[in-house]
Design a protein around this nucleic acid. Structure first.
Lengths: 112, 112
DNA sequence: GATTATATGTCGTTGTACGACATGTCGCAC
DNA sequence: GTGCGACATGTCGTACAACGACATATAATC
């Protein structure tokens, strides 16, 4: 079973947004949902099924990690990016840049 | 069954690249595989399973269409973008731009 | 004390990607 | 004239991620 990003597979949008959210600062699951909603201008609203599934895969792949926080209220589970997770996001940003560059160029060649 | 792009879902990388390839000029299946290989600097090599599956879904969704060509050699099947397909690609480029912008900004905030 | 927001999780369904398999043609070297 | 690699299109089964529905519990607010 290949871990997330191990085979240079493209990141799914949910995973991309989770990493992007955590790139700013550590968050717990529920805060991630709210941040990603805002971050995407309301376009992406993760269901808990998507969120917690992705989080456990990212944990297993070592792209994020849990840590203890002072804020122990309500059994929150805090996650932060690992260096590997940050690198993965950076690599995927580069992939997307190439994709958009190529597509834009070709859309321009035959503008309707 | 929602057609491709109908629900403003993100495009998969294979579909994105197929549309990008066809945005330049009409192609047939085998030529698409070669072009996408080159276009992605060898990173993406579509299997026929992926290619023809995506093509039939794009046809059904009206994002591409088949047409007769002078080049009738070898039972080639030619595809070209419809306006709806071009619009879909343009919309997804915009989505990716937003994504990369947001992620880049957040990666910069806490540069290692 | 009831309702809403916060918080985390599982389960079943559905759809896509992908490799493996299948089939046939064309051109060329030997 | 035949063997081989490139050209060309397709199907089938498997694996896996996304997602909605369901489940549960606590803190705040009214």
């Amino acid at each position: 079973m290949p871990k997330i990003g191990e085979e240079r597979e493209p990141l799914s949008e949910p995973v991309f947004l989770i990493l992007t959210s955590l790139a700013e600062e550590p968050r717990h699951g529920y805060a991630l949902m709210a941040d990603i909603d805002a971050l995407s201008n309301g376009r992406v609203r993760l269901s808990t099924g998507t969120l917690y599934g992705a989080l456990s895969r990212l944990l297993e792949a070592g792209r994020i990690e849990r840590f203890a926080s002072d804020d122990t209220a309500r059994d929150k589970r805090w996650y932060r990016l690992t260096p590997a997770g940050r690198a993965l996001l950076a690599a995927d940003v580069e992939r997307l840049r190439q994709l958009t560059r190529a597509a834009s160029a070709r859309l321009r060649t035959k503008e309707v």
